[in-house]
Amino acid sequence: MEDIRQEIDQDRRAFIRKVLGGTIAGSLLLVIPMPASAVLRVAEQIPGMQEETEVFTKKRFVFVVDITACIGCGSCCVADKAEYNVPDGNYRTWVERYIIDDHDDVYVDSPNGGLDGYIQPREGLPHPTRDTFFVPKLCNMCEKPSCTQVCPVGATYKTGDGFVLVDKTRCVGCSYCVQACPYSVRFINPETRTAEKCTWCYHRVRKGYLPACVSVCPTQARKFGDLNDTNSEVWKILHEPHVVSVLKPDMGNQPALHYVGLRREVV
């Protein structure tokens, strides 16, 4: 009886010790940063990015959208909404559906920004469809952005490596930038009452990962990469004979977002 009791006591003590130890160790883990080697490392998606130590990289990022590849599944929009918790009715990125009928009339729509995917054909059009395609839209990361030009407090600005970002702690919510962007990619977030837009997932890119929409696109219609890297896919696309163009070139904004197979119907 005595031995049994002793054994139980010992077990109890050991148990309490273990629990305490585990709790303390667990809490310590929360406060003490883990050595880098211990972190689960996701394979780098942008070559050389994780070795970058400078505040601004020397890379020259471009975004390429291949219109001929987009199937209008809306995965990118879903990923984007999840990544940023975008409020309903506002869009950091969206996918448009173009339909050209045999009278050469053009019909464009983007119900819910394409979030639900284009599962059903468009109804009610008066003539048979001749051609149809999808066009994803996002921030053009203009070389000469009109949004940063007009912001009265400099809350929207261009980083040293070419990203146009919004500092929501400085934004006064005047909407001037929303008016100034020729591509309508900006909106005022109803919760924060500040301007918001696509950032090309700056936080991911800085860690060497591709933008969320790029990594989920099943057909690789969205591509992202460094133009200074002659091995990158984007370099090849922009330097080989492809039909490549930008949106609204006459605005003079010089977008860093390029479209492969851009059609004249697209605005």
Binding site: Q149, V153, T192
Partner: peptide
Amino acid sequence: LHLGHPERAFSMFLTPNPTSAMAGF
């Protein structure tokens, strides 16, 4: 009344962006 953050309106004075038409107001 229009600004989303009127409490920050004074930044237009303190840290104006020289290229903005609005900053001069």
